[in-house]
Write a protein that binds this DNA or RNA. Sequence first.
DNA 1: TCGGTGTTGTCAACAGCGTTGGCAGTTTTG
DNA 2: CAAAACTGCCAACGCTGTTGACAACACCGA
Lengths: 236, 236
Amino acid sequence: MAQDSAPAKAARPSRRERKGVQQEAAVAAAFELARREGVGGLTMRRLGEALNVDASTLYRLFRDKDELLLAVYDHATAIELDEIGEVPEDEHWQDTLRRIADRIWATAVHSPAIGALTFARTTGGPAERRMVELILDTFSRSGLSRSATVRYYRAFVDAALGLAGQVATLATLDPEIQAKDASSWTRIYAQLPDGEYPTARAHITELTGIDRRAVFDVVIDAILAAAERESLASDL
Amino acid sequence: MAQDSAPAKAARPSRRERKGVQQEAAVAAAFELARREGVGGLTMRRLGEALNVDASTLYRLFRDKDELLLAVYDHATAIELDEIGEVPEDEHWQDTLRRIADRIWATAVHSPAIGALTFARTTGGPAERRMVELILDTFSRSGLSRSATVRYYRAFVDAALGLAGQVATLATLDPEIQAKDASSWTRIYAQLPDGEYPTARAHITELTGIDRRAVFDVVIDAILAAAERESLASDL
DNA sequence: TCGGTGTTGTCAACAGCGTTGGCAGTTTTG
DNA sequence: CAAAACTGCCAACGCTGTTGACAACACCGA
C-alpha cells in the first residue's frame, strides 16, 4: 500500500504487525469516509478507492463489511474516551456520567453514519472494554449494589445509544425526508378538521418547539435520579 | 390483482378506491413477509412475488420503498392501538403508559424487521396520529404543564422506540452474530489478564444475567417517576 | 544463491438490490 | 365509438457485497 521507499529498514515489521497497520489505516479511512459522505458513501469499492487498493483486497483484512464496521465503531469509541480524558478524583459520579452521555451524543451528531449503523451492536474491541469499565466504575461509586449497578449501567448505556442512534439514523437520510420529519407536526395538524386530535392540537406550539437534545437530557436525568434514589434507599 | 369474478357489480369501486385497496393488500403482505422472513426478506421483487405481481407494479402504488415501509409501520401501529383497546376511565395514567410501552416492546420482539427499519422515523399516517393523541392525553392527565407534558411525551416515546429498536435490530442479524453478542461478556473477559478491567470482572455474574426487558422497564419507570415528581412539585 | 511456499493485490464475475422507461392491453371518459 | 388514462410486464441500468482464479512479490530453509 505504497508502504515502500523507507530507507531505514531498522526492525522491519513482521507480517502480523503489517496487517495490523493496514487494518488501522483502513479503519481510519473508513471513519473519515463515513463522516464525509454519509452512510451511503461507505462502500467497499469507495473505501478501496480512497486507499488506492482494490475492494477485494479489503477482504484480506476483514472477514466482511460487518467486521470492518465494528472496528470503525470501536475506533469512534476510542476517540470518545480520549475526549472524556481523565476523571477527576472528586468529580460527582453523576457529573462523570453526564459528560460521557454528552460525548456519545456528540459522536452521533458529528458522525451519524457510524452511530446509525452500530447503535445496537457490541464491537468487542478494546475501546469498548475500556468504556464499559469506566461507566461501571462510575456507577459503583454511587454506592449501588452490584446487581443495581449493572441494571443502571445497562439502562444508561442502552438509553443513551438508543436515543443517539435515532438522531444519527435520521441524519443519514435524505435532507428532503429530514425536512418533512421536522415539519410534520404543523404540516399534518394544520389541514385536519378542528374536532380531531384535540390534545395534540392544544400542544402544537410545544410540539414544534422541542429539540432532541433536551429530550435526551430528560431521559439521562431521569435514569440518574432513579439510580440516586435507589442508592439512598439502600443506605438506610 | 385477481380482483375480478365478482358477479354482483353493485357500486363498483372508483379508481381511487381500488388503489387504496391495493395499497392495503400490499402493506399487509409486506408486513407478513417482513415478519416471516426478516428484514432481508422484504425486497420489492419478493413482495411482488407474494402478490403475484411484477415488482415494478408496486411503484404505481408507492413512490419508493421508503414510502411502503412507512405504511407498513403505520399498519403495525394500528395493530398496537387495537391491542391496547379502550382506556378505562379510572386507570392510573402511569399504568396506561406502561401498557403502551409494553405493546411497543411486543411489536419490536414479534416483528423485528419492521421495528428495526422505522424506529427513528415518523410515519405521518393515521395510526401514528391516534397514538400521539393517546399518549399526550395520558400524560396530560397527570397534571403536568403543557411544556412538561410534551417534554415527557417525547422522552417516553423516543426512549421506548430507541430501546425497542435495539432489540429489533439485533434480532434481524444472523443468529450467529446474536449468539456472539449474548456471550460476549464471558467470552471476552474470561481470557484476559486478571489485573485488567477489575470492575467489569467483579460484576461478571450480573452482567451475563441481565435481560433486556428488565432494562427497558427500568428506563420507562425512571421516566414515569420523573414525570410524577415534576407534576407533584408544580402542585404546591 | 536458489527454489519452494505462502502472502498480497488485481481482475472479472456472480447474484441480488432499488429503480426506470417503453410497450402492450385494458378500462374509463368525453 | 374514439381518445385518453391507467395497469401490468419486461428488460435494463447502475449499484451493492462477496468470491475465485491468477500473477507478482516476499520470505524461508537448503
